[in-house]
Design a binder for these strands. Structure first.
Lengths: 186, 186
DNA sequence: TCATAAACAGACCGGTTGTCCTGTTTTGTC
DNA sequence: GACAAAACAGGACAACCGGTCTGTTTATGA
């Protein structure tokens, strides 16, 4: 039941936004009573915090951090994840945006707790890429690249490209950025 | 009076978001009666559309499009605008985010009219940079660069970096991205 | 078996929201 | 100065919001 609520809340927060999602809508969509919702999540803010901590963080971990760690190199990992996302979007023809960025824009200025939770995920994302660069450097696969800067560039390009793709409802810009980022050398 | 309302609405939409800004708050902040507001903007949506068309578009034009057009080259223009924004943020110590991206994330999936208006601004932004690259190529200042791809990369990097800076409330990531983008060659 | 707490149901409330409506004042034009 | 249109004032309203409350069911575990 708690998970059902999280499912519905995650989808609604992503698709309509936090403020545009009413608890009534979520209750109806999840088939949950007001009492049940209030039992698991005392306030709407607590629900959003749970979505961020348990769903958004997991999404970033699953789609980005783990694949990059497992990749042959940082650059190859970034390229592969980017490519996979672009391919998926081109196929389904609808761009919902990056889960982390979607919530970050609406909530990071609204509340310090939201902001901290979201900033932590961004930080972990960048750090995973930077760590991979450092591992590459120790293994002689990479040289002359500033790990922190490369990580920031990769995450920023992806985030920004996804923003444009979401607004245009077209993944073309994402592919342009993927190609352009691939041509980057330090 | 109409401009006063637009001033207040722009600031509130940027700082708190569209859905979190109530017309009551805007009326109080602008010192405007309900009737006056309703006269100029029949609905809240009409007000937001006016903010997008008259303020957000002008902001992008003023801070990005015009300076890039006037710059010595596309790459130099992008670097200069990026640098100016970073310097300003580092000085004022508070990151409000990119006006266009802030609204785009919250509104582009909420309503087709919003989405179209925002997508047009993104498109004009990218096109201004791409046009400048083409001009550079005709003048022999640039070669081997795909204009569309470079423009997409520049805007995406800026947008994504601003997202992270806003969430972290720290312009450091923006500077990392500026440096990393400057090292890019095709 | 029975106490104890967690999980859930559903009505309820004060406050707020966006919008509409009826007047009044100001502005522009001949 | 007459008059039509635009600009503005401010109250009213129905719908909805998030949160609280009391009560019932289900699980737990000694």
């Amino acid at each position: 039941m708690r998970n059902k609520v999280l499912d519905v809340a995650e989808e609604s927060f992503q698709g309509r936004g936090y403020h545009a999602s009413s608890l009534g809508d979520l209750m109806a969509a999840a088939g949950v009573s007001g009492g049940a919702l209030h039992h698991h999540f005392p306030t709407k803010k607590a629900l959003a915090l749970a979505v961020i901590d348990e769903r958004v963080a997991a999404a970033v971990e699953g789609t980005w951090i783990a694949p990059v760690r497992a990749a042959a190199s940082a650059r190859e990992g970034v390229r592969a994840v980017f490519e996979a996302v672009v391919a998926e979007l081109e196929q389904q023809g609808f761009v919902r945006g990056c889960p982390l960025n979607n919530l970050a824009h609406e909530l990071s200025l609204a509340d310090p707790d939201f902001r901290m939770a979201l900033a932590g995920i961004f930080s972990a994302w960048r750090q995973a890429i930077a760590d991979k660069i450092r591992a590459d450097q120790r293994a002689g696969r990479e040289q002359g690249t500033d790990p922190q800067r490369f990580a920031a560039l990769a995450v920023a390009t992806y985030s920004g490209a996804m923003s444009m793709a979401k607004t245009a409802q077209d993944a073309g810009v994402l592919r342009d950025c993927l190609t352009a980022l691939g041509e980057t050398r330090t």
